[in-house]
Each structure stands twice: as C-alpha cells, then as structure tokens.
C-alpha cells in the first residue's frame, strides 16, 4: 500500500528535522513511552568508578548483587567483581629491613562475607579491597584479541562481543588484573561490563547500588556536574598497577602499597 500524500510529507518532514536516533526517540515519545527513548549519546560519557577502600566493610553485597544482576555462575571460581582481604603482618622489630608480605584471602570472592580471622590490635594492618574490571583506556585484553571481540567502547567501557568471541583465552591471560573468565555454559569470555545495560539507562551499576557505605561510586568523567571531579581533586588517588600504563579508570582512594 503506497502512503498518502499527507503520510509521506509527515514522515519525510520528521526524518529531515530529526534524523537518526532522534527520530526513533520521537517515535517512542509519540507512542507515550518517553522513558524508552534512546537518547543515550556515546560521545557524552566516559565511565569509571571511585573505590574508597577506607569505606569498604567487606560485607560482600557487591559480589552478590553482581552475580544476581549479570547472571554470573554461582560456583566460587567465576566473578565479575570480588573482594579481597589483606592482612599485612606487623614489622619485625629485629629485622625491620625485611619486607613483610601480605596475606590475601577472598573466600568465595567475598560472596558470603568474611568471617573474623585476625585479631584487632595485634600490630597487623587489615583491610578489604574490592576488585573488578578496570575498564582500561589502553587495555591489554583488547590489544591481544585476535578477532575484535573485546573492545573499548567510545564511552570508556571495555566490553565483550559474545557473538564474535571464539573463546581463545588470550585476553584471560593478558588481563593484568585477573578480571576475565571463560563462561562454563557459553564457553566464551565473560567479564564486568560496568553494567552497561544499566548505566546507559541512567541507573548506577548493581554493585554501586548494593554497596551500603558508598565505597563504590560510578563516575562519569565527561559529566562536569559529576561529584567525581571534586573527589579526585580533594583525595589521594591511585590505580592498580600504575606501572603497566593501562589507563585504568578504577580510581582507588586509600590504596595500600601492598595491594597487587
């Protein structure tokens, strides 16, 4: 059925005025569903996260939330995010020059929390470190992928194309932060997507949503109103393995030198 003159003019006028995505958004607004309008612009965002170690209480809410949101296998070897407990023993007063190596544990990735294991006040230093994909700007995993199945998106996340990945595991070995695993069902690689399906809809990530103390906070570095800029300016910030120049966008506050 050919369109009437009126329909033709309305359609062409709409597409001339509002091209591309804007026209699609307009369709959804006309249909009475403005919230589904795809007005997310890739070039307007640059995602990262602030992780405040001094606020992490090791409750494991982020690990549980992440596994629920992203359907991560419940077995204790698959994690998109996990929490580590560091125990730095006291300095040996007879031999203060010897480095005291930290003890690190992460029972079930912190999914069930941490049972008390060390004694407060014995001279040791104890703290929790939440870990996840660092969404590097110059990511080693992207560089080694032979087929272009993992990539840095224009808005600053490192994502996986599960339809294109062939499960060769190069990226699993290349990631300096150990953030990737091969999914036992799909047999392709899986990792933190920074809840891409949430942040592109204006929500925060599942782990940030669940964190009770605000130890994790999603940050949009291209948004001038994001409090991240104030936080980065007024706090001491470090990324994991800065010597590898990965361009990590997980900004840790209170990061101890013993953390690897």
């Amino acid at each position: 059925m050919s369109p009437t003159r009126r329909e033709f003019l309305a359609q062409s006028g709409k597409f001339l005025l509002l091209t591309g995505a804007a026209a699609l958004a307009f369709d959804q607004i006309l249909a009475g569903k403005p919230e589904e309008a795809s007005n997310y612009k890739l070039t307007n965002h640059w995602w990262g996260m602030i992780i405040d170690i001094e606020k992490c209480i090791g409750c494991g809410a982020c690990v549980r939330a992440d596994k629920a949101e992203n359907d991560v296998p419940r077995q204790p070897y698959y994690f998109r995010t996990w929490v580590e407990r560091y125990h730095v023993p006291p300095v040996d007063l007879q031999h203060p020059e010897t480095e005291s190596l930290p003890e690190v544990d992460s029972p079930n990735g912190g999914y069930d929390g941490f049972t008390e294991k060390y004694r407060r006040g014995d001279g040791s230093k104890n703290f929790f470190v939440p870990k996840l994909c660092n969404h590097c700007a110059h990511s080693p995993c992207v560089q080694v992928c032979p087929v272009g199945a993992t990539f840095e998106s224009p808005d600053g996340t490192v994502l996986v194309d599960t339809k294109y990945c062939m499960g060769c595991r190069y990226c699993v070995q290349a990631c300096p932060y150990g953030c990737r695993y091969i999914h036992p069902v799909t047999h392709v690689v899986d990792k933190c997507s920074l809840c891409y399906h949430r942040i592109t809809k204006g929500l925060t990530t599942a782990c940030c949503e669940a964190c009770p103390t605000g130890a994790r906070r999603l940050a949009d570095l291209k948004n001038p109103d994001d409090p991240v800029h104030e936080f980065l300016r007024t706090h001491t910030i470090q990324v994991l393995k800065p010597q590898m120049a990965t361009g990590s966008k997980m900004f840790y506050h209170g990061l101890d030198g013993s953390v690897r």
């Binding site: 890739l42 272009g148 194309d161 997507s193 399906h197 809809k201 599942a206």
Partner: peptide, 17 residues
C-alpha cells in the same frame, strides 16, 4: 575494530535491580 551491534547486545540485558 569491533562490531557496532555488540554495544546494543550489551545494552539488551534485562534489569534485575
């Protein structure tokens, strides 16, 4: 160097929280 549709694939996951 990637498939542009992969961005939409990543967005398509249903919300849980």
């Amino acid at each position: 160097h990637f498939r542009a549709g992969a961005l939409d694939d990543n967005r398509a996951r249903p919300l849980v929280f």
